[in-house]
Simulated scan of single mutants.
Amino acid sequence: MAGEFTVNETLNTLRAIFEKHKEDRVCVIGTTCAGKSTLLNQLSEYNCEDLDEVLWPNIPEEEKELMNHLLKMPWTIELGNEIDRLVYKFGRVKAGYPLFSTVILDCEAVVYLDISDELLAVHCEKRGVSFEDSKNIKEAIEGDWNNHKLKNDKILYYLTVTE
């Protein structure tokens, strides 16, 4: 499934995906400022979880210090790889609890919330977040997405956020 969707259409599409995969592990991915938290907050009936809420309680203190340090730095591939290492080590997607994340974790289905650079710039400005970092994270997500697409190891859904 692929397409461009308004917020309401995106919510309805996510509901349909979550219903179809209610016994599966579903990962909803998107870059910073793509609208993941906004959507997650409107889908409470599906037990959606945010990566930070799942991840942080499971990370040992010494790893938390490293993660806090890394998150204050401008995003680079090396930084992204280190954060991914920690996320893969301590993050989990549970069946029936769709996880909203910037990283594709072990799961059966992935929903990619893509966003145009123009809209991403607007969202970043509103939140006071670095557009360059968000764009770099987006490119890393797309690389991971394409790798899974080539492997054909997950059910993939592609949605373009339009507002």
Score class of each variant (00 low, 15 high):
Leu120Met: 11
Asp106Ile: 02
Thr76Tyr: 07
Lys135Pro: 00
Ala34Ile: 05
His123Val: 01
Thr162Gly: 05
Lys149Phe: 10
Val161Ser: 07
Ile137Thr: 08
Leu39Trp: 06
Leu119Gly: 06
Lys154Thr: 10
Lys64Arg: 15
Lys20Met: 06
Tyr88Pro: 01
Leu99His: 04
Ser116Lys: 06
Tyr97Gln: 15
Lys149Trp: 03
Lys64Asn: 08
Arg15Glu: 06
Ser44Ala: 14
Lys22Gly: 04
Trp75Gly: 00
Leu99Phe: 02
Val111Tyr: 04
Glu53Gln: 15
Lys138Gln: 09
Val161His: 10
Gly96Cys: 12
Asn81Gly: 09
Leu39Phe: 13
Arg15Cys: 01
Ala16Gln: 02
Ala140Glu: 06
Pro57Arg: 08
Lys20Cys: 06
Leu86Ser: 05
Val110Met: 00
Ile104Phe: 02
Val129Met: 07
Ile104Thr: 08
Asn68Ser: 12
Glu4Met: 09
Cys33Trp: 04
Gly35Arg: 11
Asp106Phe: 01
Ala109Ile: 00
Lys64Met: 14
Asn8Lys: 13
Arg15Phe: 00
Ile17Pro: 05
Ile115Lys: 02
Cys48Leu: 11
Leu113Phe: 07
Thr10Ile: 08
Asp117Ile: 02
Glu65Asp: 14
Ala109Leu: 01
Ala121Phe: 01
Tyr88Phe: 14
Lys64Asp: 02
Gln42Ser: 15
Gln42Thr: 11
Asp106Gly: 08
Ala2Tyr: 10
Cys48Asp: 11
Glu63Gln: 15
Lys22Ser: 14
Ile115Val: 14
Trp145Val: 05
Lys94Gly: 04
His69Cys: 10
Asn12Cys: 00
Leu113Gln: 02
Leu159Ile: 14
Cys33Val: 07
Leu70Gly: 14
Asp106Asn: 13
Leu156Lys: 06
Asp52Lys: 14
Lys138Tyr: 02
Asp133Ser: 08
Thr76Phe: 10
Leu79Cys: 01
Val26Ser: 12
Ile137Ala: 01
Tyr46Cys: 14
Glu82Ala: 10
Ala109His: 03
Asn146Gln: 09
Ser130Phe: 03
Cys48Thr: 13
Leu55Glu: 09
Cys48Tyr: 10
Cys124Gln: 05
Val129Trp: 00
Ile141Thr: 03
Ile104Asn: 09
Glu118Arg: 12
Ser130Asn: 04
Asn8Pro: 00
Leu119Met: 09
Arg25Trp: 06
Leu11Glu: 08
Glu23Ser: 15
Thr10Met: 13
Leu71Arg: 13
His148Lys: 03
Val93Gln: 04
Tyr97Leu: 04
Lys36Cys: 10
Asn136Asp: 07
Pro57Ser: 11
Lys138Trp: 00
Leu40Asn: 10
Asp84Tyr: 07
Tyr88Val: 09
Ala140Leu: 14
Ala109Trp: 00
Phe100Pro: 04
Cys124Arg: 01
Ser116Met: 06
Ala34Asp: 05
Glu19Gly: 04
Pro98Leu: 10
Val54Pro: 09
Tyr97Arg: 11
Ala2Asp: 11
Asp114Trp: 01
Asp133Lys: 03
Leu119Arg: 05
Tyr88Lys: 14
Asp52Arg: 15
Ser134Glu: 06
Lys36Leu: 12
Leu70Tyr: 11
Asp84Arg: 15
Met1Gln: 03
Leu43Val: 14
Arg92Leu: 03
Asn41Glu: 15
Ile17Ala: 03
Ala2Gln: 12
Leu159Val: 12
Met73Ile: 09
Trp56Leu: 13
Leu43Cys: 12
Thr76Val: 08
Pro74Leu: 12
Leu11Thr: 10
Lys135Ile: 02
Glu23Gly: 13
Cys107Arg: 02
Asn152Ala: 13
Glu9Arg: 04
Thr162Trp: 04
Lys72Val: 05
